[in-house]
Design a protein around this nucleic acid. Structure first.
Length: 112
DNA sequence: GACATGACGGCAG
DNA sequence: CCTGCCGCCATGT
């Protein structure tokens, strides 16, 4: 079941600390499918049905809110981020590099 | 079963 | 520095 793949993404996304963000590439790298960042985005698209998944904490490697259009409103993502003290300017996360949460480095769990 | 698409990323020009 | 193309993998038609 490829469904497990999405589950992996969900698990990682849920573990993103509040006030932090990560990128599709980092999650893909953590999942072992380095370079398949698209799959992460795909999983996020499916995760949109699950409100328990903070998809707003996942952005592209540029720190741009490329997925904001997939939220209820295009400002929903920004509001959620700002609610966590994350500054968003012109769809771009300010101080993005300092807020990056790399699961491969921060998260040491082999499996769960 | 094959073609087209997608919330990305890296590299080449 | 900015623009464009290819690669990766799963899903939908």
């Amino acid at each position: 079941m490829s469904k497990n793949f999405f589950e992996r993404v969900y698990e990682v996304a849920r573990q993103i600390p509040k006030g932090r963000i990560t990128t599709y590439g980092l999650i893909a790298n953590y999942l072992g499918s380095k370079g398949s960042a698209r799959m992460v985005g795909w999983a996020m698209n499916a995760s949109g049905r699950d409100e328990t998944i903070p998809a707003h904490r996942v952005v592209n490697r540029n720190g741009l809110l490329t997925g904001k259009a997939h939220f209820g409103d295009i400002y929903q993502m920004e509001q959620l981020l700002e609610a966590e003290n994350i500054i968003v300017k012109n769809n771009q996360i300010q101080n993005f590099e300092a807020l990056i949460w790399d699961p491969t480095k921060e998260l040491i769990s082999t499996k769960f």
